[in-house]
Design a protein around this nucleic acid. Structure first.
Length: 288
DNA sequence: TGCCAGGCATCTA
DNA sequence: TAGATGCATGGC
């Protein structure tokens, strides 16, 4: 993105500047917690969240974020509040990281990925994404999410497609999703959409429940097990004390901590796991 | 060309 | 109730 006014195709309005609080934008967007962003040739990142599209760039890790929207209008206060919340810019990360660094091994993970932040993603977007992630490669998850958005999501200003609404998906049949090439996951998407569209599962309802009960409600959805439920709780509902243990995290925890995580500050175990994950992905050989 | 992926549902003993 | 197996597809 060019300074002083984005001219990147489709994103034409005046950039919104947000202090990043030490965030490394590229690491954050590509550490495996979201599949809704793509890097453009000019180095900026185009992505969608909650029915909004944005082009986001950063001069260097830790520098302010510059966001451009696609409708040509200035960002509203509501937009500003949305993106600040999405990027978790209201969190005191330095204090949190200091707490993590009380443990020697976890400190090594934090040092490896200090600029990674846990995003606050929209609930339904996150649910769809992690249903698609099961038993899948990260590159393929990207492709599935992209086909889902482009096939069934709304066209947003800037030329990107948002995630489809639950009501839109709920009206479809499995055959309608054949274009996704999602395999057995297609019926899981529809079951999730129908339960959300009917109100049986809602962000507000889950927010009112303790972790265990919220997890149980999510696992009523066909295709949602403990791992997907925990990822939705962590990334989509801001339950930062849940601990999603995927393969790489498990390997890293075994390699670093002898099979169990060190004690971390209450309310932040999930975030600590994200740092462990980044370390594992970059330090452990595939298939180990 | 074959293995296997950031799981889960279903079957079977 | 725990362990084994199948699932669709495509990256590597």
């Amino acid at each position: 993105m060019q300074k002083g006014g984005s001219k990147t195709a489709g994103f034409t309005n005046r950039p919104l500047r947000l202090e990043s609080g030490g965030m490394d934008l590229a690491s954050t967007l590509f550490c495996g917690q979201t599949f809704a962003w793509e890097r453009r040739p000019d180095g900026a990142f185009a992505g969608v969240a909650g029915g909004r599209a944005a082009l986001c760039s950063q001069e260097a890790p830790g520098a302010p974020l510059l966001l451009a929207g696609g409708d040509g209008a200035p960002f509203s206060q509501e937009d500003r509040a949305f993106w600040r919340r999405y990027f978790a810019l209201d969190v005191d990360w330095e204090t949190l990281l200091l707490r993590f660094c009380a443990d020697e091994n976890l400190a090594a993970c934090v040092a490896h990925a200090r600029g990674v932040r846990v995003l606050r993603q929209p609930f339904f977007d996150t649910l769809l994404t992690f249903i698609l992630s099961q038993n899948n490669h990260i590159p393929r998850i990207h492709g599935l999410v992209q086909r889902l958005r482009e096939g069934f999501g709304p066209l947003l200003p800037g030329g990107l497609y948002g995630f489809p609404a639950a009501e839109r998906l709920a009206a479809l049949e499995v055959e309608d999703l054949a274009c996704l090439r999602a395999g057995f996951r297609a019926k899981y998407l529809l079951d999730a959409a129908r339960r959300v569209a009917s109100g049986e599962v809602s962000e507000q309802g889950l927010a009112a429940l303790p972790d265990d009960e919220a997890r149980a409600v999510l696992m009523r959805i066909h295709g949602v097990g403990p791992k997907v439920a925990d990822c939705v709780l962590l990334y989509g509902l801001g339950r930062q004390d849940v601990v999603p243990m995927d393969v790489w995290m498990k390997r890293a925890v075994e390699a670093l901590f002898g099979g169990k995580m060190p004690p971390v500050a209450a309310g932040s175990a999930g975030i600590a796991q994200q740092y462990v994950f980044c370390w594992a992905r970059d330090n452990l050989p595939r298939g180990s």
